[in-house]
């Protein structure tokens, strides 16, 4: 299979998030924390959320890895603040759709900067990188939902 041109992958916005990640750092009063690691490549993300009722009041992360994994989680955190758990869940599934090549998802304004990652879908071996932060998010949401059960 021919690899598509690299400029569809390495958009400026991705490199910008990679070099200046948003919401990077510890969240001292976080309520849920998930550590995700891709054992194949060693990329790591520790995602921390502070939940208020059923909303995400704050999202931060620390981690290291390739430009795709780190830019993706940085972009993701900018969209989580103020969202309900359900909205966060649908953001995650919308992003997964985009990784599977859904062109409509890649035009969805609610996806914000994440749309710059649409090109990753054409590089199958890199999709896992882009999903690492969302894997952490989904695990965090799962744990929060469990914790909320009476």
């Amino acid at each position: 299979m021919e690899t598509p041109p690299l400029n569809s992958l390495y958009q400026q916005l991705i490199l910008e998030h990679y070099r200046n990640p948003r919401n990077r750092g510890e969240l001292p009063d976080g309520t849920v924390e998930v550590h995700m690691r891709n054992p194949v490549c060693g990329d790591e993300i520790r995602l921390q959320l502070r939940l208020h009722d059923d909303h995400i009041a704050e999202a931060r992360f620390v981690g290291h890895g390739c430009s795709i994994s780190q830019a993706s989680v940085s972009m993701m955190t900018t969209l989580l603040k103020g969202r309900s758990l359900d909205e966060a869940e649908s953001l995650a599934s919308r992003f997964t759709q985009m990784m599977h090549g859904d062109a409509e998802a890649s035009r969805d304004p609610s996806m914000g900067d994440l749309r710059a990652l649409a090109g990753v879908s054409k590089f199958p071996v890199r999709i896992k990188c882009a999903l690492l932060g969302f894997d952490a998010l989904q695990e965090a949401l799962k744990r929060s939902a469990k914790g909320a059960e009476p």
């Binding site: 690899t3 041109p5 690299l6 992958l9 390495y10 490549c41 990329d43 890895g65 390739c66 430009s67 795709i68 590089f123 071996v125 890199r126 990188c129």
Partner: peptide, 11 residues
């Protein structure tokens, strides 16, 4: 990152 290097070389 080495993965990015590898993707660019692979292309």
């Amino acid at each position: 990152h080495p993965h990015d290097i590898s993707t660019i070389l692979d292309s």
